[in-house]
Design a protein around this nucleic acid. Sequence first.
DNA 1: GTCTCCCTCCACCTTTGGGTTGAGGCGGTA
DNA 2: TACCGCCTCAACCCAAAGGTGGAGGGAGAC
Lengths: 220, 220
Amino acid sequence: MGVTTRVAIVDDDALVRAGLRMILGGDPSLSIVGEASDGREALDMIATASPHVVLMDIRMPVLDGLETTKALTRRGDHVRIIVLTTFDTDELVVTALRHGAVGFLLKDTSPSNIVDAVRRVAAGESILSPSVTAQLIAKVTGGSDAQRERAVVLLEGLTDREREVAIAVGRGLSNTEISAELFMGVATVKTHLGHVFVKLDATNRVQVARVVHDAELASD
Amino acid sequence: MGVTTRVAIVDDDALVRAGLRMILGGDPSLSIVGEASDGREALDMIATASPHVVLMDIRMPVLDGLETTKALTRRGDHVRIIVLTTFDTDELVVTALRHGAVGFLLKDTSPSNIVDAVRRVAAGESILSPSVTAQLIAKVTGGSDAQRERAVVLLEGLTDREREVAIAVGRGLSNTEISAELFMGVATVKTHLGHVFVKLDATNRVQVARVVHDAELASD
DNA sequence: GTCTCCCTCCACCTTTGGGTTGAGGCGGTA
DNA sequence: TACCGCCTCAACCCAAAGGTGGAGGGAGAC
């Protein structure tokens, strides 16, 4: 791709826009084709300027970066969005990515890295700043890893038949349906389920379903 | 930290080990304190050599990189593991990260980037190669997005009270408990729940719990 | 052989859940 | 005004779930 990459900047702070303009404008492979100071403006601007890459602030008046990203994705624009944020403490990372963002940068990222990020994103890569990466990993691996681990251990404490019954309960089946599926009498289902209640410390089949669900996510 | 970072290499291919040794040995801030050609060896070697960072291949005889990583994590070693792989098509990324790896690199990564990665990891960052990042994002965003979206839509179709009841059901509460928590009669709980069954196309409170759970993951 | 664990099932009972009908109050809207 | 949707509750019923005790058979451990 020898063609220049079309970039747009969306931020409510004029100073930030100016800074980014300077940083990105210095690179001959990039050309800034539009700017906007809030989400509404951005939607219009992007429709007419058709940039390849958009640098988008999260916190903005009128329509924030998340909603704007979502709107762009919904409307089917082929724009690669890099979300900018001041703090990485935000719980917004996953939300932004889910809404279609392909990059996530902290504002204090060095100029050369920002330029690099834009180029990479234009080339089809996804780019995350290190702390964001760590967050993402935490999201995938953990969430509540202890809880999953606990669920797995609990299920392992069951006998084979008990576990089968528990899993069937997790699928929302009634005792009669379970008895048919596992080729056992309803009485037997009840017996197993009684043991399951004790072992999983549940009083209720919904609670059994919860444990089964938690354990399911742990694809060891 | 002016101290040199202790690095270990685990790979069954002697050529790869030699290559990495050359690449990493060239950097004065790193010192290679051990090597192993399979997982078993690695466990012993790491115990005695106590490296800060381990570069670990996934595909190895005897004990693969995944299991080795898992074993190290379980045994409580304070080692930061970077997983190496030839192809990024692997479904192993998430598994590796879940088992305690903090980095994931393709073997064709440039030498300078590998060195950089080791230093970053030693400094506490998490590092992923671009395509892996994309995969990770896909994992977080996707998974079963349609299912989640469906769940969210279904819950939005409920009235406020119905939704509150549904969520309470998802927590495994009985009708009596729900009536106490939401300050309404048990009869009212039943009424709402009846509507919930219809709207969520459920016949059974476990199925309601499933929908609620699916929707919970979608933090819109 | 004996002990233990698991799987299987029975009978009996109480509680909860799920389905139905009906009804009063309240707020918004045509 | 009348209408409509939502929240509230009641009485009733039957089916399902949950709890208790017991019992027989098979497989492995000692």
